[in-house]
Structure formats: C-alpha cells, structure tokens
Design a protein around this nucleic acid. Structure first.
Lengths: 192, 192
DNA sequence: TCCCAAAAGTGATACGGTACAACTTACTAC
DNA sequence: GTAGTAAGTTGTACCGTATCACTTTTGGGA
C-alpha cells in the first residue's frame, strides 16, 4: 500500500502513521482529555508544528482513516443491489455498522473511546452529516423530485441522523429499525 | 422582575446583565470570533474570573435568556389544546419559531449572529436537543408505549432535529412541513 | 552530474478560552 | 454589631491552535 511512491512520500506517510498510532495508543491508555498534543508529537518524535501539518486538529488524529468510513457510506448507496431503494440500502448499511460496533471486536475499544469523548462524538457526527446534501440529491433523483425538494432534504437528514441516535441507544439495532420504519412508511405515505 | 431580592442578589443580576449586554453588543458589532472574553469582561468592568463565575463558556454569554427558549418548548407540549397530538403541537411550535425568525424583526440580527457562527449554532443545537429524552417519554405516555420504546426515541429525535434542519434550509417553513409530514404519516403507519 | 525549487520538518513565540488558588470586599442574617 | 458567606479580584498557568523564519531532505531538470 505504500509502494509506488518516492522516498519522500513514504516518509511522509510514515510520519503520519506514527502520529496517528501514538495518539490512539495514548488516548486509549489514559483518555482523550488527559493527553496533550505536545505529548503526542513527542511520542512520535516530531515537533508539534509537524503534527499540525499532518492533522489540523486533535480530533482528526483519531479519525486517521476517516476517508474509509465516508467511502463506505457512499459505496453502500452507489453499489446497492438493483431494485433496492436508497433508503433500504442506507438502513442495511446503518444496521451493519451498528451491529459491527456492538460485537465486541477489536474496534470496540475504539468505539468506546469515541462514544465516551464528547469532542470525538461531535467530530464524528459532523463528518457523517457532511453527506446530507449529496444524499438528498440522490433521493431526489430516485423519485424524480426537484433537487431541492424539502422532503428529500428532511429524509436525508433523518436517515443520517439515525446513526447518531442508534449509537447512544440502549438497543441500537432495534432503534435503527424503528427509525427507518418511520421514515420508510412516512416517505411513502406523505403527500408530495 | 428584580424586586424582592436583597441588594446582593440585585447586584449579582446586574453584573450578569452587564456582561451579557456587553457581549451581545460587541459580538454584533465586530463578530463573535473577533471579540475576546477578556475584552467583554473589561467592557462590563469586571474581571475575567467574575465573567466565568456567571457564564461557564463564551457561547453561554449569547444565550443569556436560554431558559426562556427551553421553557417555551416545554410549554408548547404541556399546554397544547385538547385533542391535539404532541407531534402536531411540536410542528406548530417549530413552525412558529421558524416563521418568527424569518420575519425581519428585532431578533433577526441575533439569529444572523447565531446562524453565522458555527460555535453558536452548535451550542444552540445541543441546548435544543437536551429535551430529546423528556419528549420521548411524553410521546410514549401519549401512545401507551413503554417508556424506552425505540420508535418514540426516534420520533422525538427527528422532531427536534427538524428545527436544526429548517434553520439552514432555503425555505424553512416548507421544510418543517415536509419533515413533519413524513414523521406524522410514518408514525401512524409504522408497525409497533 | 550538479543544482535548485519544492516539500518536510523545526523552534520559538503568541493568542484565546478555560481553570484554579489565594485574597479582599461587601452584604445578610443572627 | 459581628460573624459568616458569597461576589469579585489578581495572578498565573494550561491547552489547542496559529504563524513565522529557518534548516534539512529530496526529486527532477539542465
């Protein structure tokens, strides 16, 4: 994965990785708020200025692979099976994410960290909701509604919000199902 | 309104008011990010420590009367006309808020300030969503569902989110109506 | 091959929001 | 009138972030 680059780019990637690794390790060990960025830079043996060149904020250190999460969301909609509605594809994807989080896999302590740190939860939420507009447009295209249809905007917003809602819920899977049940029925029945 | 208190309490309230007034004035004049808390404290002729005793964060300076907003929300649900569902009461209240904001009244520059400052928008959003759980319980009580019903939780979340959605929308009123149309129909039709 | 522009990294310094501790002032209640 | 309590002050420090001038590395063209 780091092949095909020159030495310069490899070193850059290595520095970035060292920073993200050190940050995650320290955060998991001692808690997000008890670790300073200067300390992380130290652990990765670079200056804080370098850290900032790679990561624009402390939060972004945790979501090093955030592009993956975003890509997965887009792909879930783009590559949905024929005959599957966008909404159904989103429901399945959300459900899969939520259930994967519930299974105490290796990513579980990561999830615990994010859930237990308001700054990280909010950062993740902003990241997630960045796709609200695109999703709204996809929904509009699917149903032949105008691109700025308020109903599509609302539906997109709610569908994405469901993730945030489920993560905090005591029964995430049932919450996802209940939320999408409302949205799917409401979407069919609501006048347009 | 400041009667019936001793001098001490009156002075405290006056200090608080002076701080909030100075803050709002400076924010409107020069923008939220271009005014420092030390400067606000100076304008109100108190120390920054005193400012912090009254307002735990810079954002809270802007929402001095936040209790009013919250009270209005609770009242809209509590004092709804007989025969009106909680959801309908919320829709009307949200619509009223949104339309009042659109009318270029005296509160308009305030709204512009909040809308144009991410830190303030987010603060307001958190404030607003604080009632998610209470609302969920009210909805459960109304429909006889168990208090922790995921459907009620989702509905409460979505209903409150609608405000945040509408504020940014190009046609807030239509957005509120479209959003609640989905929720009302979905709520009736969804299996429980 | 050499050289240079670009890119990565460094160190110092500063700023704004927040936190805290020790202290002084002013008011209320007894 | 006095004693206790709450408001307010001063100073200092921490953290995340921003910026600047500077050095080192390195890739690609002359």
């Amino acid at each position: 994965m780091t092949t095909g680059m020159g030495r310069r780019e490899r070193k850059k990637a290595a520095t970035r990785q060292a920073l993200a690794d050190a940050a995650l390790r320290l955060f998991l060990e001692r808690g997000y708020d008890n670790v300073g960025v200067r300390e992380i830079a130290d652990a990765a043996d670079v200056s804080t200025t370098t850290l900032q060149k790679h990561f624009p904020s402390k939060e972004s250190l945790v979501f090093d692979r955030d592009a993956d999460i975003e890509e997965a969301l887009i792909a879930a909609v783009r590559d949905r099976a024929r005959g599957t509605s966008v909404l159904a594809a989103l429901r399945d994807h959300t459900l899969a994410r939520v259930e994967r989080g519930a299974a105490a896999g290796g990513a579980s302590e990561f999830m615990t960290l994010v859930r237990g740190t308001p700054a990280l939860s909010e950062y993740w939420h902003r990241m997630w909701m960045r796709h609200e507009k695109s999703l709204s447009h996809v929904l509009a295209a699917e149903t032949g509604a105008p691109e700025t249809d308020p109903g599509c905007a609302a539906l997109a917003h709610f569908a994405l919000e469901t993730s945030a809602l489920a993560i905090r819920a005591e029964d995430p899977a049932r919450t996802v199902e209940a939320a999408f049940a409302i949205l799917e029925h409401g979407w069919r029945a609501a006048p347009r």
